[in-house]
Amino acid sequence: MNVPVLDCSGLVRRFGGRAVVDGVSLSVAPGETYGLLGPNGAGKTTTIRMVCGLLRPDAGTVHVAGRPVTTAAGPAKRLIGFVPQDVALYPDLSVRENLRFFGRLYRLPRRVRERRVDEVLDLVELRERAGDRVDSLSGGMRRRLNIGAGLVHAPTLLVLDEPTVGVDPQSRHAIMESVTRFGQQGMAVLYTTHYMEEAERLCDRVGIIDRGRLVVEGAPRELVSLVAERDRVRLTAVGDLAAYTEACRAFARVGGVARTGERGEVVELVVEDARSLLPGLIALAHDNGVDIRGVEIDEPDLETVFLHLTGTALRE
């Protein structure tokens, strides 16, 4: 087996006496893309900050390529490329100047730095815009350059925190294609996202974190097998959906319930044998003053697993 590039063991971090991360252990092998998924407040960001040496754990260890990661500058940090969710670039500098700047931060020799800048420009498909100021780029281009800034020093581990938030479909596709190439080239990637289809497409393994604990991990297909014979039902409705959601939680053979949709108008459920259970769910809606306007039934997928294990939808 490959020796892990990233090895986290028993990570704990407390804030105000509460364990925000509680005993998280995970590893990422060379060439592997590992998706860390969890609802808001589950502990993903805190875990990532400890992985990157931006936050000291109260307990546990992080090693990258066998070297301990601490909050102090050290050799392990040079092996990490961190791409935050918020774009961290200098808007009044050009694309090339930004990449040169980040190369200098990592003390790359000038000749190596210029070569890496050219390679990264090709990798993120921005060579034609190399001389343009960042504030003239589209949002998707800035996202791609943000990834480029994390790649310029040729890291062993790339940490991507929701890299496709707010980008157009074309740029999102380009980013996902790039992530796929990183893995093919042997880079280890730790990836967080709020888009389940990204995790299913990109990730070799997925870990689901909830309330600070890693509740399950495995290949997407392995995780889907955990909810075999379960279906996901989406009910679009109007009325007292808060009461209806609570009533559904107590209904027989319902494994998870969440409110989704732009206005919370969709009730999503993980159930056994949706077709036989649907008449009872509709009757329950009527009893709670809810009018069902639409019904969709899906076979199990990674979103179903997430809803089943956490009781929430990923975007909540």
Rank of each mutant, 00 (worst) to 15 (best):
L157A: 08
L157I: 06
F182A: 05
S171L: 02
E162K: 06
A149T: 14
H153T: 08
T156W: 01
L145W: 12
L160P: 11
T156I: 00
Q184T: 09
P155R: 11
P163I: 02
G166C: 07
L151D: 13
V179K: 06
G148A: 11
V165H: 01
P163F: 00
G148P: 10
L158W: 08
G166Y: 04
G183V: 05
R181A: 12
D168C: 06
N146K: 03
I147F: 09
F182H: 07
N146M: 03
H153V: 04
I147L: 14
M176R: 15
L145N: 12
H173D: 03
V152I: 11
V152Q: 12
A154E: 15
Q185G: 02
D168R: 05
P163Q: 03
R142C: 11
M176Q: 15
D161L: 04
G183R: 13
V165Y: 01
V167Q: 03
P163V: 01
S171W: 04
P155C: 10
V152T: 11
R172H: 02
V179T: 02
V179G: 03
P169Q: 08
R143T: 03
G183C: 11
I175E: 01
G166N: 09
I175Q: 02
I175K: 00
H173R: 15
V159F: 10
V159M: 11
A154L: 09
L145K: 11
G148Y: 04
V165C: 00
T180F: 01
I147V: 15
E177R: 14
R181F: 01
L158P: 08
E177F: 00
M141H: 12
F182E: 03
P169E: 08
G166I: 03
G148M: 09
I147D: 06
A149K: 13
D161Q: 06
I175H: 02
L158D: 09
M176Y: 00
F182W: 15
A174W: 00
P155Y: 10
G183A: 15
R143K: 15
D161R: 05
R181D: 13
